[in-house]
C-alpha cells in the first residue's frame, strides 16, 4: 500500500478517534449509562407507584476502566476505518481530476461522510439508547448497510455527476427512506423518551464533530510533504 495513504489514514483516524472518544465520554456515555439504569431495572420509569416522574441524572463513569478502554480502542478502530474509506474516495476523486484535496475541502469531505454514514442511517434508525428495544438485528444491519452505501453513492453522484445523472443521486439518497427501516409494531421502551431523544442528538452531534475533524486531518496529512 502507498505509504502516504497508510500514514495519512492512520494518523488522522487515531487523532479523530481519540477526540471523538473524549467527546463521547463527556456527552454520550453518561446518557448511555443512565439508559442502562432503566434497561437493567435499577431505575423504573412509570414505576410501581404509578408516578410518571423518575429521578434524573447520569450515574457517573464508575470504575469499569476495561470497558471504557475498549470504547476508546474501538473508536480508534472505527475512525481509522472511516479514514481509510474517506481517503480512498478523496484520492480516487483527485486521481480522476474531479477535485483537488485541500484542508478546507477536507472539511466538506468529512461532513459528507457524516451525512452518508451517520445522519442518513440515523434518519431511519435513530441511535439506540439502552432500554429502547428495536427490531431484529439482521434486517436492521442490512437496511443500515444499504442506506450508507446508497447515501455515499448518492452524494458522490450529486457532487461529481453531470446533468441528469446528478439528479439520480437524489433518488439514491431518498430510496432507503421511502423503502423504510425495519421497526417494531409496538413501543415498549423502558427508558424515558426525553433521555432517548437527548441520546440521539448527542450521539449525532458528537459524530458530526468526529467526522469533520477526520476530513480535515486526512487532507492535512495528505497534503503535507
Amino acid at each position: 500500500m502507498n505509504q502516504k495513504v497508510l500514514t495519512s489514514a492512520v494518523f488522522a483516524g487515531v487523532a479523530a478517534g481519540l477526540i471523538a472518544a473524549l467527546l463521547q465520554f463527556v456527552f454520550v456515555i453518561p446518557a448511555l449509562l443512565e439508559g442502562e439504569l432503566f434497561e437493567t431495572g435499577a431505575r423504573i420509569h412509570f414505576g410501581a407507584n404509578g408516578s410518571p416522574e423518575s429521578e434524573r441524572g447520569a450515574p457517573g463513569l464508575g470504575g469499569e476502566w476495561g470497558r471504557h478502554l475498549m470504547t476508546v480502542g474501538f473508536n480508534i478502530v472505527t475512525y481509522v476505518g472511516f479514514g481509510f474509506l474517506l481517503l480512498a474516495a478523496m484520492v480516487f476523486a483527485e486521481l480522476r481530476g474531479l477535485t483537488k484535496i485541500t484542508a478546507r475541502q477536507g472539511l466538506i469531505w468529512g461532513l459528507a461522510g457524516f451525512i452518508a454514514i451517520q445522519l442518513a442511517p440515523a434518519f431511519g434508525l435513530p441511535p439506540e439508547l439502552p432500554g429502547t428495544p428495536a427490531a431484529e438485528i439482521g434486517p436492521r444491519q442490512m437496511w443500515w448497510l444499504g442506506t450508507l452505501v446508497a447515501s455515499a453513492l448518492g452524494l458522490w453522484v450529486i457532487a461529481f455527476g453531470r446533468g441528469v445523472i446528478a439528479l439520480s443521486g437524489v433518488v439514491l439518497l431518498l430510496a432507503p427512506h421511502l423503502i423504510g427501516a425495519p421497526h417494531l409494531d409496538t413501543y415498549w421502551g423502558v427508558s424515558p423518551p426525553e433521555l432517548s431523544a437527548e441520546f440521539a442528538t448527542l450521539s449525532l452531534g458528537t459524530a458530526a464533530a468526529g467526522w469533520t475533524i477526520l476530513g480535515f486531518l486526512l487532507s492535512w496529512f495528505w497534503t503535507r510533504d
Binding site: 502507498n2 502516504k4 489514514a9 478502530v77 472505527t78 476505518g81 479514514g83 481509510f84 480512498a88
Partner: peptide, 22 residues
C-alpha cells in the same frame, strides 16, 4: 505515486476495520 491499487487496498482495510468495530 498513487495508482488505483493503493486506493483499493485502503478501501479494503477500511471495510475490514469497520466490519470488526461496527
Amino acid at each position: 505515486d498513487v495508482s488505483l491499487l493503493p486506493i483499493a487496498f485502503a478501501a479494503l482495510a477500511g471495510l475490514m476495520l469497520l466490519f470488526a468495530s461496527g
